[in-house]
């Protein structure tokens, strides 16, 4: 089987942004890793898939929207640690029968990991997530003490 990385010209202007995002994520995850105890993992640091991630903020919630086409719900992991949201998982190859041959592979198969620092404190117990049409939406309610409050003049 051959793997061909394919970059179309229409996507080219974005690659710089992607690379920057990748680099930032890699740096983030680098500092989270117990690198010195598991040196072998360092080899995986600069490969992989970096799904597009949007972050929104409203009065009550912080919402992360991640594009993860063709995953199984059970293969997505979401974790929250010290104000950093991490979404990771693994996209598995569909079980293939005999005689199948990949002619061209642009879709990334394997593990991915995205981390983003949240802008405010959130209530970790009330985080919810939905996965629909290949888009993961994580809703993180803000912690009570950081929500904007109206104070009445008495």
């Amino acid at each position: 089987m051959t793997l061909i990385r394919y970059q179309t010209s229409e996507l080219a202007p974005w690659s710089a942004v992607d690379r920057w995002n990748n680099l930032r994520d890699e740096l983030n995850s680098f500092f989270e890793l117990p690198v010195w105890s598991s040196f072998a993992r360092a080899g995986q640091l600069f490969n992989g898939w970096s799904p597009a991630l949007d972050l929104c903020q409203s009065n009550d919630n912080v919402i992360a929207v991640v594009e993860l086409p063709g995953m199984r719900k059970d293969d997505i992991k979401i974790s929250l640690h010290e104000g950093t949201l991490t979404i990771s998982g693994e996209r598995k190859r569909e079980s293939s029968s005999n005689g199948e041959k990949a002619e061209r592979t642009e879709r990334y198969i394997g593990t991915f990991r995205r981390s983003i620092a949240l802008p405010t404190r959130v209530d970790a117990n009330k985080v919810s997530a939905t996965y629909r049409d290949g888009i993961l939406t994580v809703t993180l309610p803000k912690a009570e003490e950081v929500k904007p409050k109206q104070i009445q003049v008495s």
């Binding site: 995002n21 597009a52 991630l53 949007d54 972050l55 929104c56 903020q57 919630n61 919402i63 939406t137």
Partner: peptide
Amino acid sequence: VEGTLIHHESR
């Protein structure tokens, strides 16, 4: 999605 976008990568 409600609220304002503070980090944007999707197209």
